[in-house]
């Protein structure tokens, strides 16, 4: 899978993907930043950096 942002920056992710990757899925880069999957075309996956909200997660 080729993860990249809309402007073409390559992202290496560390997330374990269960089943098929889906639009809306949250993945984590090796730098620890969180991205959300915006588009999937074959093996090309466009992700967008999302801000870690104050109330993020558990």
């Amino acid at each position: 899978m080729n993860y990249h942002t809309a402007n073409g920056d390559q992202i290496e992710i560390t997330s374990q993907i269960i089943g098929d990757i889906t639009v809306g899925e949250v993945v984590q880069s090796i730098e620890g930043e969180m991205y959300e999957v915006r588009n999937i075309e074959d093996t090309n996956i466009t992700v967008e950096l999302i801000q870690v909200e104050e109330d993020w997660g558990e």
Partner: peptide
């Protein structure tokens, strides 16, 4: 009810 989809949500779907 979700926002971003984590592995937890995919496990729940399964």
């Amino acid at each position: 009810l979700h926002t971003g989809i984590r592995n937890e949500e995919k496990l729940l779907l399964q």
